[in-house]
Design a protein around this nucleic acid. Sequence first.
DNA 1: ATTTGGTGTTGTG
DNA 2: CACAACACCAAAT
Length: 302
Amino acid sequence: MHAGLMPSPAHSLAPDRSGDYDHVRRAIEFLSAAWREQPSLETLAAHVGLSPAHMQRLFKRWCGLSPKEFVQAITYDHARGLLEGSASILEAAHEVGLSGGGRLHDLLVTYEAMTPGDLKRRGDGLALAYGFHPSPFGDALVIASERGITGLAFCDGEAERPAALADMARRWPRARLTEDPGRTAPLLARIFGTGRSKAGQPVRLVLIGSDFEVRVWDALLKVPTGRAVSYSDIAGAIGTPTAVRAVGSAVGRNPISFVVPCHRALRRDGNLGGYHWGITRKKAIIGWEAGRLRHPDVASRA
DNA sequence: ATTTGGTGTTGTG
DNA sequence: CACAACACCAAAT
C-alpha cells in the first residue's frame, strides 16, 4: 500500500499532522537502533523513505526539534538532567497539593477517584463511550464516562485498534462500552488542542484503581513538563519507600496515558525504563515535550 | 554490560 | 491462602 504518496496540503494553515507520527515513529526506531554510528540525516531519511529535506522539516513541524536535537533530548545525560532535584518536586507539591486540589502540569486537571465499592463492581453499571482519534503519537483511544475521562491509550494504525480497546476494556470488564467518537473527540481536543487549555476548562479525569494505584497516579500528576521523577522518588513520596517495584507496576497500569504523565517516570540512573505502549512512544513523548518547551509557540499556531 | 537477590501490590486459583 | 508477575534498584560479577 502506497499511502505515502498522499499529496501534501501545500498551503493549508492547519497542516494534516495525523500522518506525521508514523514517519516519526520509524525515524525514532531507526535512531534508537543505530545511535552509536551517529547516522547522518541522509541515512535516516533514506531508511524512512523521505528526502533529507522533508525528513528535517517533518521533525521540525512535529516537535520543533531537528532529528539531531531530538536524539539529544532523549539521551541518558538529558534524562539525568530531567531528574535533577526530582525528590523536591514531589515534596513541594505535597505541601501545596493537599490544600490546593488538583492542578497539574501544563494542563488544568481535576480528578476524582472511584470508591473501593465501585472498584469491586468492576465497572458494573458504568456506561462508557469510546472513540479513536488521530494524535501526535498515533491513534489515540479515548474512553469517557459522564463524569470525565477514564482512559486514554495509543496504538499504531487501524490493525492495532481491537487490541488497544481490549486492553482498556479488560480494566472494567462489566462496563458497557459504546463507540461514540462524537463524544470523545472534544475531550481529546482539549488535551492536544492548540495552546493552553481554553480558559478555565479543566480536563476532568476519573481514576479507577486501587488506593495504592491512585496515590501513585496522583504523584505523577504533580510532575511538571520538562521534569521527571524516579520510581523510587514516588515510592518515598507516597510513604512506602521500599515499594519501588510495586510503584513501577502501578505506573504501568496508568489508564490515562499522557494526561497522567507516566512518561515522566524514569529509572533513577537516567535509563528511560519501560512503557506500556512501547518505549518508542515514551521517547517520542519526551522529545516532543522537550521541543514544545523550547518553542512554546509551536502548538499555538494551528 | 550482565546477573542476582530483595523488594510491595495485585490478580489468579 | 499461596504464588507468580511486574514499566525497579543496588551491589557484585
